[in-house]
Design a protein around this nucleic acid. Structure first.
Lengths: 140, 140
DNA sequence: GTTCTTGCAAAATATTTGCAAGACG
DNA sequence: CGTCTTGCAAATATTTTGCAAGAAC
């Protein structure tokens, strides 16, 4: 996504697109997979971790990112939804226990689950773990 | 589960049942829900966190516990499987964003997912998030 | 005695906040 | 100006290791 698309997306989610926020959003967009705080820090370099943290916190509140826990900590991923109230494009992720990468399986929606009475579902975290094709092919 | 059941279970998983490990396993068993390191520390009191950590690491390696990430960090749960190589009783969990508790939905197995060629699935983490019945009834 | 286990302290990480300076309007 | 944003430093919290003493075999 280019800068103006990101700017637009942020406005849609009620976020003022400051320079730092655009940089963080861009890094997320270019990651093509969920990134952790540390990965973002490494990729961005120019912004202090507190700045990244605050951007992510805001994005999270405004549902501009998904928060995802794989076996390796918390990761963030740009949300493609245009709705600033709900996450509606959640999908399954795969976390490779060998190389540590987390891959989006965009085509695989999270299955509906029938919960007992009284539970209100707001979001879901569904991560499959195992070995990815790359690591099976070239085991180090 | 009582002490001798736990001892037996541990042996089944190739773990020498030392006193510390029994205490940790017992705490997990009595929790009736996935517990974090900190929760275990609080419940146990008598063992240093490094001891708990080392017990959990071992349990994890021998598949005596499930590792679970809800929105609130890592949690551990006794695995009811008698197989020390694979997790085969994974089920869905619900994490309440209000009270922070994570509840097991033992009846709800994790749905089968058809992944593209080349992915080897070893385990899965499926956590639904929202508000639990208790918190909807008595919102603080 | 050799190996495994434990507790303590401390290192290494990760997450989060306070505050003053700067940018924006 | 007044408000929002940022960087830096520092406080917290969390996870992990080193090492020496003790227990188990």
């Amino acid at each position: 996504m280019n800068e103006s698309d990101l700017t637009f997306l942020m406005k849609e989610h009620g976020i003022k697109p400051t320079s730092n926020r655009i940089i963080v959003a861009k890094a997320l967009s270019e990651g093509n997979r969920p990134l952790s705080m540390t990965e973002l820090e490494d990729r961005i370099g120019s912004i202090d971790k507190s700045g990244i943290f605050r951007a992510l916190t805001l994005f999270k509140e405004q549902h501009l990112v998904h928060v995802l826990e794989d076996g390796d900590g918390v990761r963030y991923e740009l949300c493609h939804s245009h709705d600033h109230a709900v996450d509606n494009d959640m999908h399954i992720h795969f976390h490779c226990e060998h190389c540590g990468e987390t891959i989006c399986l965009e085509d695989l929606a999270i299955p509906e689950v029938q919960l007992p009475e009284g539970f209100l579902i707001q979001s879901a975290n569904f991560v499959l773990k195992g070995i990815c094709p790359k690591c099976q092919k070239y085991p180090s």
